[in-house]
C-alpha cells in the first residue's frame, strides 16, 4: 500500500485496548494518514490542542474518561465541528450511537469492523463527497 506524497491528514485514535489501538493506528498509517494514538479519553482531550487532529476515531468504552465524556467536553469547547469524530461502538448498541450523535459525533463504526470500512469512514470524515448529479 504506497504512501502519498503530499501532506498527510492528521487523525487522532483513542482506544484503551493497546493491541486494538495499535492495529487501528497501523491500518490508518498504512492508508497514508498521520495518526496519533491515545490510551484514554483524558489523554485524547489533551492531544487535541497540541496535535490539532483533522479527524478523530474514538472508542466509547474507556477508563478514566469514556468516549461520551470526551464528546461532551469537545461540544462544550465548540470543537465538535472542528474535529469530526467517529465513535467505535459495540455491536447492537443503537442507543450508544444516538447518544454519541447528540453529543456531536459525526459517524460511528461498530466493532468488529473490516479494515476497508474503517478507512472509508475515516476518509468520509475528512472530505465531503461531491457526487456528479445526473439529471
Amino acid at each position: 500500500m504506497p504512501l502519498g506524497e503530499g501532506r498527510r491528514r492528521r487523525v487522532l485514535v483513542a482506544d484503551d485496548e493497546p493491541y486494538i489501538l495499535e492495529l487501528i493506528v497501523t491500518r490508518l498509517e498504512l492508508a497514508g494518514f498521520d495518526v496519533r494514538p491515545s490510551r484514554n479519553g483524558q489523554d485524547a482531550l489533551e492531544r487535541l490542542a497540541d496535535f490539532k487532529p483533522e479527524a478523530m476515531v474514538l472508542d466509547i468504552n474507556m477508563p478514566v474518561l469514556d468516549g461520551f465524556g470526551v464528546l461532551a467536553r469537545m461540544k462544550a469547547q465548540g470543537l465538535s465541528d472542528k474535529v469530526p469524530t467517529m465513535v467505535l461502538t459495540a455491536r447492537n448498541s443503537g442507543d450508544d450511537v444516538a447518544r454519541a450523535i447528540r453529543l456531536g459525533a459525526r459517524d460511528y463504526l461498530a466493532k468488529p469492523f473490516k479494515d476497508e470500512a474503517l478507512i472509508a469512514r475515516v476518509g468520509r470524515l475528512l472530505a465531503r463527497p461531491r457526487p456528479v448529479a445526473r439529471v
Binding site: G6, R8, A31, G32, F33, I119, G123, A127, P131, R134
Partner: peptide, 26 residues
C-alpha cells in the same frame, strides 16, 4: 449506479492527500 456514484470516494490511497483541511483545529 446512482448510489455508487453519489458515494464515490477517493480511493484509500488518495485519502490522505486530496483537498485541504476544511476545519483545521487552530
Amino acid at each position: 449506479a446512482a448510489i455508487a456514484a453519489a458515494t464515490a470516494w477517493a480511493s484509500p490511497d488518495e485519502a490522505g492527500e486530496i483537498g485541504g483541511p476544511a476545519n483545521a483545529v487552530g
